[in-house]
Design a protein around this nucleic acid. Structure first.
Length: 519
RNA sequence: GCGCUGAUAAUCUAGUUUGGUUAGGAUACUUGCCUCCCAAGCAAGCGACCCGGGUUCAAAUCCCGGUCGGCGCACCA
């Protein structure tokens, strides 16, 4: 990670991005007229467009355009039993105790009892733990101070169903979407003709009562997750027919090995095929999906390859349900951080739901030997926060250039993600030229483009305004247009202009959008 | 959540040390004039001391509490 002066620069960059997002109508802290609410964000007119287009790109590429993934959307307020089965009710409820002495530090009550007294705490509740601490007169391990009364730290938001608020009416706002996919698994299997292996995709808002929200849109308490669970026959978890097609793809990797060795570089380069041969990945499908997503971020969203890496979780880092987890990390202004997570969740969740609900979670498959039944195995769970992609896309795209001695701010984002496809300007004032420009603008809209019309200020000012929000193309109508039926297309990144017949306009814009390359 | 630190218009900022005039400037935005292929110029307009309490004749300025941000620690199923 960078140090010294660079740290300062990076920090200033994040602050610049936040001010930029505010100025251009991308994102605002919610309730800011009342001072703001930490960890919750509102999206403005430009932000909501970019956000929706990112979501649309994801859904189009991973659900609509694939034969092996179907969609699902669960309820936000969830059946409480789901979180008992998933383990969230125990692992999201941490018993904590605060030092009342000098250091004021916070300790996990269960860890304290385990470390200090060597007692297994697995089945002990907060009251029992508290009693043990008092009986054995355990003090703060940091400063020896007295410990106060324990509190429960619940990372799930809860609410009550119905007007009576008692313990029987408690329900939780979902902290992840995955459990809605698992608990709805039978619904999908029974209502559609899915064949193994296949995925169930889900997008939607989740709620986590994070302790300290930080870094703009990065760590927040309410955010939209886009993910799918990819299921396989547990006997065939490495049967990945398309793997060979991507085997040569070069990945930036920081596996457990490099982290154990305190590897000095940010990552090591290796092809996914070689990494699989060396069993750096534990599952072939997981390697496949991680590669597909790396490629998606680079090619479909325009993120620079050197800003992305795959980092494997250390054994101690793994969640209770995961066999192996990889983070797809982006080099944010505040360091390498998770953009997407991809866990191998095994059969854990479906088995849990089978046990708790008494419903069979088995999948029936017709094979040459006859019908076999099994609990499907989740080989990969690519799960990504929409807000984090938005932050990444803005951080990647935000560019300052000097043009003729003046600063030009350009949001160089992929045209597929831009809030407007095209903006239409009449070059001069005049009724005829306005009418022509309006006509072209309306035709572009009819033709399926998200278009904007602007006739205020100088032409240069209009270009700059659209550079800032990332509009990739501006079409200018001048007096000659009225004679020769030609218009000028101006490119956001290069500022170059081409003059083409109006009849070819839609086709040309579509071509340029499809073939867009970020330098 | 703890510690350090900060908060002046949509944005950037002067003023806060040492309380005292109508809180100054730049950018952006709106309107008009002029110009028309890269934020030109001129004129006018719009717009702020984070919230609450205290001290004082008087608070943007001093004190206390809160909110929000940044950094460090902790947390990140």
């Amino acid at each position: 990670m960078k140090t010294g002066q660079n740290d300062k620069e990076m920090q200033l960059f994040l602050e610049k991005i936040m001010a930029f997002a505010n100025k251009t109508g991308i994102a605002f802290i919610t309730g800011n007229i009342y001072g703001g609410l930490a960890g919750f964000w509102d999206y403005g007119p430009i932000g909501v467009e970019i956000k929706n287009r990112i979501k649309d790109a994801w859904w189009t590429d991973f659900v609509r355009n694939r034969d092996d993934i179907v969609g699902y959307e669960g309820a936000i307020i969830t059946h409480p039993k789901i979180w008992e089965a998933s383990g969230h009710l125990t692992s999201f409820n941490d018993p904590l105790i605060f030092c009342q002495g000098k250091c004021k530090k916070k300790h996990r009550l269960d860890h304290l009892v385990e470390d200090q007294l060597n007692i297994n705490t697995e089945n002990l509740g907060i009251d029992e733990l508290s009693k043990i601490i008092k009986e054995k007169e355990v003090n703060c391990p940091e400063c020896g101070g007295n410990l106060g009364e324990p509190v429960t730290f619940n990372l799930m938001f809860n609410t009550h169903i119905g007007p009576v608020q008692d313990s029987a009416s408690v329900a939780y706002l979902r902290p992840e979407n995955a459990q809605l996919i698992f608990s709805g698994f039978k619904n999908v299997v029974d209502s559609t003709r899915v064949k193994m292996p296949f995925g169930i995709a889900h997008t939607g808002i989740v709620f986590r009562n994070e302790i300290s929200p930080r870094n703009f849109l990065f760590r927040v308490r309410e955010y939209e997750l886009m993910e799918f669970e990819y299921f396989s026959n547990p006997e065939k978890t490495n049967d990945c027919p398309d793997f060979d097609e991507i085997a040569e793809y070069e990945l930036n990797i920081l596996s457990q090995i490099e982290q154990d060795q305190n590897f000095e570089e940010d990552y090591r380069k290796i092809s996914v095929g070689k990494a699989w041969e060396k069993r750096i990945f534990k599952n072939k499908w997981q390697a496949y999906w991680l590669t597909i997503f790396i490629r998606w971020f680079i090619e479909a969203l325009g993120i620079r390859a050197e800003m992305l890496r795959l980092r494997q979780h250390m054994e101690t880092e793994l969640s209770h349900y995961a066999l192996d987890t990889w983070d797809l990390e982006y080099k944010y202004p505040f360091g390498w951080k998770e953009l997407m997570g991809c866990a191998n969740r095994t059969q854990f969740d479906l088995a849990q739901h089978q046990e708790f609900s008494k419903s069979k979670m088995e999948f029936m498959e017709q094979t040459e030997e006859g019908i076999i039944r099994y609990i499907p195995y989740v080989v990969a769970e690519p799960s990504v926060g929409l807000g984090r992609i938005l932050l990444t896309v803005i951080a990647e795209g935000y560019t300052e250039e000097v043009v003729k001695g003046r600063k030009r701010i350009v949001l160089k984002i992929h045209p597929r993600l831009a809030p407007y496809d095209v903006s239409v300007f009449p070059l001069q004032k005049g009724e005829k030229i306005f009418a022509k420009a309006r006509e072209i603008f309306e035709n572009l809209r009819t033709d399926g483009f998200i278009a904007y019309y602007d006739d205020s200020g100088s032409i240069g000012k209009r270009y700059r305004r659209h550079d800032e929000i990332g509009t990739p193309f501006c079409v200018t109508i001048d007096y000659e247009t009225l004679e020769d039926e030609q218009v000028t297309i101006r490119n956001r990144d290069t500022m170059e202009q081409v003059r083409i017949p109006i009849n070819n306009l839609g086709e040309e814009l579509r071509y340029q959008k499809r073939n867009y390359k970020i330098k």
